[in-house]
Simulated assay, not measured.
Amino acid sequence: MPAFSLEPERLARCARLRALAADRLRPLAEKGEPGRVNRALLAELGRLGLLERLFTSGALDLCLVRESLAYACTEAETALALQGLGAHPVHAHGTPAQRTRWLPAVADGSAVAAFALSEPDAGSDAAALTLRAAPDTARAAGARPGGRPGWRLTGEKCWISNAPEADFYTVFARTTPGAGSRGITAFLVPADRPGLTGGALEMLSPHPIGTLAFDGVPVTADDVLGEVDRGFRVAMSTLNLFRPSVGAFALGMAQAALDATLAHTARRDAFGGKLSDLQTVAHQVAEMALRTEAARLMVYAAATAYDDGAPDLPKRAAMAKLLATENAQYVVDKAVQLHGARALRRGHLLEHLYREVRAPRIYEGASEVQRAIIAKELYAAPRPTTEAP
């Protein structure tokens, strides 16, 4: 049982979900084309009701779903997570018309969502984005008094998951030049808008990731998510929810690597006994387990803080993502070392995890960014005054 006290019902649901992922989702994942959106897998996630839970579950349950899926099928976990990341701004900040149009299709797996924040020169420093939303002067000239304002989006996005195959994008663009994070607006942009094109990128881990080019793409006030010039809040509130669950994704991978290592070292003959009889091996496995349990505690605590509306959520979310993703890298690397050359063969679980585990330390805020967030929150918090000795 995890160190964090979960109810037996939740533990049982996690076990069922791991079995479901292995039996029904992994075969579909294995049939998918690397680097492409696997719509058959999304449809099955929809049939199983897992995509709908993106909009009905709290942060802790989202973490448990992501951890359970990651343990048995990382492709299914990633497909679900990308739907949530792209569609959550619509769920949390969209108009009734926007939600009605897109969320049912996301929930049943028939519409693919994407979160378009990063740019070629604005990755970790998201407030520096330069995709321009210029007032649509032609529209304004012909608009009736009181008509809806419009903009034209011009620029690029890069490292966008599900691009260029998504059906709609949550796009963050600069509506007020020189205003930093205060001049960004979030838009819901359907993929069929004129002037919107994209291309695929080949990455270490074969997920659908690409670029987007905006050549005067038209948007109106009906496409705004939240408020004009307040889009950075939309982005950060989304990341505060999903950063702990990125940690949960990492937990699932770390636990899978740990369990594989326990099984391998217990049965592998070496030096007149089993690998597990060697103290140096047993101590490494103990360290892997220790760090994974510590990360699990922090992820679950951060998710619970989100559900409870805790004021220090940015710090907790950053800590959870940082610790869990760094730990997963450590555990998977140790697991490969203890398995030896067999773990490097194509098709081995650890070869797969070794490629999968690297990216979470970068996306949704690199580890260095999480440390910066933690430090900022620590120094901003009120501290008790003490007299000098």
Rank of each mutant, 00 (worst) to 15 (best):
I184D: 09
R66C: 14
S68P: 10
G146A: 11
W102K: 01
L131H: 06
S118R: 14
Q83W: 09
T170M: 01
E77F: 02
A76P: 08
A128C: 10
A81P: 00
A97Q: 14
A163R: 11
G109I: 08
R148T: 15
P135D: 02
H88A: 13
L54N: 08
L129I: 12
A166N: 06
D61T: 11
A166C: 09
A72E: 08
E165Q: 15
S110W: 04
A79S: 14
A97S: 13
V171R: 05
R139D: 01
L131D: 04
A141C: 05
I160S: 11
A134L: 09
A179M: 09
L51N: 03
A113T: 01
G183L: 02
Y169G: 05
T56K: 11
G183I: 02
H93V: 05
R144T: 13
G155D: 09
R99S: 11
G150D: 03
G109W: 02
G146F: 01
A72L: 03
G150T: 05
R144F: 07
R139N: 00
A81T: 13
C73E: 12
A166Q: 09
D61E: 15
T95Y: 03
P164Y: 07
L131S: 04
R152E: 08
G146S: 10
Q98C: 09
H91D: 13
A127F: 12
R132V: 08
E52I: 00
F172Q: 03
A114E: 04
A141G: 13
A59I: 10
S181K: 15
G155C: 08
E77V: 01
